[in-house]
Amino acid sequence: MNDDELYSIGELARRTGVSVKTIRFYSDRGLVPPTDRSPAGYRRYDLAAVARLDLIRTLRELGLDLTTVRRVLDHEIALSDVAAAHAEALTVQIRTLRLRRAILTAVSERGSTPEELNLMHRLARLSEAERDRLIGDFLDTVFGDDPEFAAIRRTLTAELPDHPTTVQLKAWVELAELSQDLGFRSAVRQMAEDYQAGRGPRRVPLRPGLVARIREQVGPAVRAGIDPRSPEADAVLRSLTADYAAAVGAADDDHLRARLAELLQTANDPRWAQYLTLLATINGWAAPEPLAPIYDWTIEALRRAG
């Protein structure tokens, strides 16, 4: 081989931008062995060593460890396989970093107690599977394994997309934090129990059609500005309670009205409205209709009538 085609270690460093110290390190470990040595014993490298060093530098900058780099150089594993594996690993890292950024943004915007910060830090360190289990644990606590709630569980499950926005990430952090609130869990569990068929004498259950009935019958009255304590409200309330009593097979009496007021008071928990709003944001759904004004109107009218 012509000496003009060989590079000293210093020339190789200048050509590749890799330090002499690093080249010597790679050379000593057999990653970039010298092509030849000068009569004085100095290492010399050819163009193949230049290409090999360029590849090593690229792989290292992409985060591959030296063991993997050696296996690629020795053709023990395909570079395409390594690239695919590391691309997936980087995807996971990016998701984690975006989640951590969302948490830091939330902290900076609202401020947090040390306890809240510790919780959010723990949430940020969860893997995707662990995040799913976190929400699953909340739903298990609230609904148990009752098959009657299978469909409802699915609609209440938060699923971050593969490429969530910052808004979705922040919403997930808030929802996960909310799901750990024992008071909130207890309130939702109460709603689940109210949803089921009545148990005990004269127990009035909260059936699926109730919210739809209230929205259809009370919504127009709220939008029209009708006072729930006015005579005009009586006709709306009578229609609502008569339809509901027939639907659940109960008498349209003071007990039913008192029970409905109690059920709606539980369902009107602002934390539940927050959960549904956050859930819609995370899953990319349309924002739910605010029901608090309708619930407030109905509760006041029911209690006045009772």
Rank of each mutant, 00 (worst) to 15 (best):
S27W: 14
D28C: 03
G30E: 07
G30M: 13
D36V: 08
D36N: 15
S38H: 12
P39T: 02
A40E: 07
A40L: 15
A40G: 14
Y42L: 10
R43M: 05
R44V: 03
R44D: 02
R44W: 01
Y45E: 05
D46Y: 09
L47M: 09
A51G: 01
R52N: 01
L53S: 00
R57N: 07
L62M: 10
L62A: 02
L62G: 05
L62W: 01
G63Q: 02
G63S: 01
G63P: 03
L66E: 00
T67Q: 08
T67N: 12
T68P: 05
T68F: 00
R71Y: 04
R71C: 13
L73N: 10
I77S: 11
A78V: 09
L79Y: 09
S80M: 12
D81P: 08
V82W: 01
H86S: 15
V92P: 03
I94C: 10
L97Y: 00
R98D: 09
R100Q: 07
A102F: 04
A102E: 03
I103K: 02
I103L: 09
L104A: 10
L104T: 00
T105D: 13
A106W: 00
A106M: 09
E109G: 10
G111H: 04
S112W: 11
S112Y: 06
T113V: 06
E115D: 11
L117E: 04
H121R: 13
R122G: 15
R122E: 14
A124N: 10
S127N: 03
E128L: 14
E130C: 05
R131S: 11
D132L: 10
D137T: 14
D137P: 11
D140H: 13
T141H: 15
T141G: 15
V142C: 03
F143D: 00
F143E: 00
D145Y: 14
P147Q: 02
F149K: 05
A150F: 07
I152T: 12
I152W: 06
R153H: 11
R153G: 05
R153S: 07
R153N: 04
A158M: 00
A158W: 00
